[in-house]
């Protein structure tokens, strides 16, 4: 009889992911007037070392979907291979039917949940956005298969730092400019407070017209805040 310990594997010669190696941090996605906007920085952390600085963590999937990932980068790239295969076979039918964001999101949820059932998870939190037939779609899946849709979603630290901002400031009919501004505000907060975040990010857009992923750029920062320069001021006794 295999014990749970056995299922989880021992440290020496495990064929499963026991902990991630190279990871990406938060992804944020929001609905706006014409579709979905998503943003993620391009850092790839090796533990606490910032090892890679040009990792693309958002990719288009077929005609109607956009996928962003945080967590293990290699697992994300494996997921992209699964989806490339799926989309290829979908296109080969050439019959006027195609997978929309809802189908892709469900398929990803099945994959993530199946792998957790095998105690061999894909170590990612995924954000899936898309537009098909005038319908906007934004959802997320975690590495154990927890999934939901919302008007704005975020993974990892984004859940703690970005979503409270989004809950205050998001509205249904944000223009593209307003939406980018809102995402940049969130990313700036993450940059200040999430040590894995780096100041090189991309913004991806998906509308009825298709996907565009921006060139990498950086945000203007201001490190002269009093609390940054003298963090212990006003907190007597702390170091």
């Amino acid at each position: 009889m295999t014990s749970v310990e056995g299922l989880l594997g021992c440290e020496q010669d495990s064929q499963r992911t026991l902990s991630p190696y190279v990871t990406g941090t938060s992804v944020i996605g929001i609905k706006y007037k014409d579709g979905i906007l998503m943003t993620a920085d391009m850092g790839g952390s090796y533990g606490s070392t910032l090892r890679y600085k040009s990792v693309e963590r958002m990719k288009s999937i077929g005609k109607h979907s956009l996928l962003g990932a945080s967590g293990e980068i290699s697992d994300f790239q494996e997921i992209l291979r699964y989806l490339d295969e799926l989309i290829k076979y979908d296109n080969m039918w050439d019959d006027g039917n195609s997978f929309g964001p809802k189908e892709i999101h469900n398929y990803l949820t099945r994959i993530m949940y199946n792998r957790r059932n095998k105690f061999d998870p894909l170590w990612n939190s995924l954000v899936l956005g898309g537009v098909k037939n005038g319908q906007k779609y934004l959802g997320t899946v975690s590495m154990i298969g927890v999934h939901f849709e919302d008007n704005h979603v975020a993974t990892g630290f984004g859940n703690h730092l970005a979503r409270p901002i989004l809950r205050d400031e998001w509205k249904e009919d944000l223009s593209y400019e307003e939406a980018v501004k809102l995402l940049e505000k969130c990313m700036r907060v993450l940059l200040y407070r999430d040590r894995s975040a780096i100041n090189k990010l991309q913004v991806a857009k998906i509308t009825e017209e298709g996907v565009t992923i921006s060139q990498p750029y950086s945000l203007k920062t201001f490190w002269g805040f009093n609390a940054f320069q003298n963090p212990s001021k006003g907190a007597e006794g702390t170091w």
């Binding site: 039918w93 019959d95 039917n97 997978f99 929309g100 809802k102 189908e103 469900n106 398929y107 099945r110």
Partner: peptide, 12 residues
């Protein structure tokens, strides 16, 4: 429909 939560295209 278990995998995709959408109906299977007839032609397929």
């Amino acid at each position: 429909s278990f995998t995709y939560e959408s109906p299977l295209p007839v032609g397929r």
